[in-house]
Structures are given as C-alpha cells and as structure tokens.
Design a protein around this nucleic acid. Structure first.
Lengths: 188, 188
DNA sequence: GCCTACATGTAAATAGTTACATGATTGA
DNA sequence: TCAATCATGTAACTATTTACATGTAGGC
C-alpha cells in the first residue's frame, strides 16, 4: 500500500510546516506516523521533493541560493510562502478524497494544523465511508461461501466496526470541547 | 490498495477450483471476500485471465476449442490439470510472501483448499509479522509528536493488536481440533 | 424495440518499486 | 583509516488505473 503522489505531497508540506527537515528524516517521520497505512520509499520521496522544489513550494535555500544537484550532504527543506498557502488551501478543502484510504491518515496526522470545522468534516466523511464499507461487507457475501471466507469477512467487519467506534468518540470529542481529543484509555 | 498480479493469479486459480466462473462473477466474488483488503478492477482482471489462459492454467473450452477473441458473451473459465498442479504447489509453498499484506487475505480465503500444516505456517508467520509491526509502532514514535499524530499511532496499535488476538484464537483452534475454526461468537 | 444491467476487452498514461551508484559523517 | 550508518539520487522495469469502446441478455 503505497502513498500516492498527491497525498505524499500533502504529508511533506504538512511536516515541513511543523519542522524544516531533510528527506531521510522526513521519511522516518512519515513512516513512524503513517507506517500502519502506507510506506514511503526513497524512490518516491526524493523525486517528490524535487517536484515540490521546482514548483516553488519548498526550498533548501537556507543560506544563499539552492545548491546544485551534485552535493550529497543534507538538504534541509522548508516551506516557502507559496508552499504555506498551498498547504492551507489543501487542508481547508475537504472533499471525498479527504476520507479515502489514501488521504485519511495523512489528513488526520495534520489535524494539528487544520481548522476544527474541517477536522469534523473529515471525521464525519470518514465515518460515512466506513459505514458504507460495513454495509457492503454485510450484503456482498455469497450465502454458500466456505468457512474461511466467511471468517475473513467477519474479521474485516469487526475491523471496520472498530474504526467506526473510534470515529464516534473522536467526533463526540471534537463537538464538545473544541480541540479536545480522546482520553487515551485502553479500549481492550 | 490494489492486489498485485501474483496474488490475483492465486485468487483466480483458487476460486476456479471451487467453481468454474467468468470474469465478471469472479470479480464480484473476490471483491466480496477480499474487498476489505484489496479491490480488483476489470483492467487488471481480464488481462490476468488472458495471461493465465495463454499459460495453459485455465481454459474456457467447455464446448469445443477456445472461442476467438471477438465474442463478448460470457467466457466461463475452469482450471486445467496444469492449473490444478500450479495451485496445489502455490498453496503448499509457504514463504514470507504468504503473510505479507498482499498475499495474506488471498491465502486465508483459500484455507479450505490448504493443508492444515500450511494453514498453521501462514497464521504463525502472519502473527510474527504483526508483532513486528506492533514493535515498530511502539518504538518508532518521536517523543515530541503532536496530539493527533500520537492518537493515530495509538489507533494503529490497537488495530494490529486486535489482529494478533484474532490470530491467537485461530492458531489455537487449528492446533487443537485439526481443521476446526472460530465458533463465530460476536467479540463486541 | 428499447432500456438497463451484464459482460468483455484495450490502450494510453502514469505511477511506483527495486536495484543500484554514490557521497558524507561519525566513532572506534 | 576503516566500517557502519546516514543521506541523496536515478533509471529501468513493471504494474495498474482510467477511460473508453463494444457487445449481449432479459424485462417491459
């Protein structure tokens, strides 16, 4: 389960706003936070950094002009003003992509930079999406399926149901105390 | 999260042994059983059927020789003897791919066609894999991560832990009553 | 006879991994 | 100075999506 370009861009921009960083470290951070959902390889990360750099959204021009390609020492990127604008726009525009599997994890990890109303939109959208998946799991199963296929669907159903529970709690928390989140109690 | 070629092939062969079928139906079945893990599109499925057909593993020659490409009516495939051999070999050869995310769902859905010892290998391998993920989630987190990033990792941790519990039960069931599986009680 | 759902197929465009090559830094 | 790890980068390979084109069967 790779992380598609657009989502990777968002993750990079978001992280760089929190802290200027270089590719290697960026990858460690993204894989630590999103590793359950996606894995980012260098083969996608470095080209992405170049692309964003050429687009003027990020820059490694801490001291003087951007270095030429030759050097292989650390290249610390930070957001340009254009990059900050882009990030703000992306985070504010919540459409159905925002709760799809590719984007949701990235979006959620950047909730700290996201307006409360947008956070709620993403969570509610994600919950509706998860409920659809649940309905599909309940209805799509052939009645003559074998034991193991049935068990697999049951497990999937349980996973999706758990996520819905989690989203319920998050939504409730967002709605009551603006910005407060789960207490972190162990749900086992 | 697509389903990579090799795994798709396995899913197709396995399903065709259970019941001869045509592409459209095959896709419905695979998406019903594995839909939580992967989605199969026509753009991958039909080329895969052609490939397997050319390789002599499946055939739509119910009556007479294989139809020419022109017709767009149902094309019911079944396994050839070579396809049955291939499937049996695949299911018997359990390596680390068998419990990776791409393969595990497919493998599990075909446990009905798999030898008990191989089933156990897959489940135990998967559990070890899940435990590694859990360890990575526990250790990889930067201490200064923000609230939402932390919450996301906590959720991921919980999901992986749930899967480990599930695998524990399945492994216990496989070990005691050879071939018996979960009672299906509702774990909510 | 027409509409809808069923059913098959292809091609262009793109994305992403893998494997490799290379350089920098640090500590023993 | 050597090894290990940190760090960046590229290119070939291959898969996969998307959008399209088309045909078929059944109900009304």
């Amino acid at each position: 389960m790779p992380l598609r370009q657009q989502s990777l861009d968002l993750a990079i921009l978001g992280r760089l706003l929190q802290a200027p960083s270089h590719g290697y470290e960026l990858r460690q951070h993204v894989n630590a936070v999103l590793g359950y959902f996606h894995v980012v390889s260098f083969g996608s990360l470095y080209p992405a950094l170049k692309r964003l750099s050429r687009a003027g959204l990020i820059c490694d021009c801490e001291n003087g002009p951007p270095r030429l390609m030759a050097s292989r020492s650390r290249r610390v990127y930070h957001l340009t003003p254009a990059g900050q604008d882009r990030l703000a726009n992306e985070l504010a525009s919540v459409d159905s992509d925002a709760w799809a599997d590719d984007d949701f994890g990235v979006r959620f990890s950047l909730f700290g930079l996201t307006a409360p109303a947008s956070r709620l939109d993403v969570l509610v959208g994600r919950r509706a999406y998860a409920r659809e998946r649940l309905a599909r799991l309940d209805s799509g199963m052939a009645p003559n399926a074998d034991r193991y296929a049935t068990e697999l669907v049951r497990f999937a159903r349980q996973m999706v149901a758990s996520e819905i529970d989690w989203l319920d709690q998050l939504i409730a928390a967002e709605q009551t105390a603006d910005g407060e989140v789960l207490t972190g109690g162990n749900p086992t």
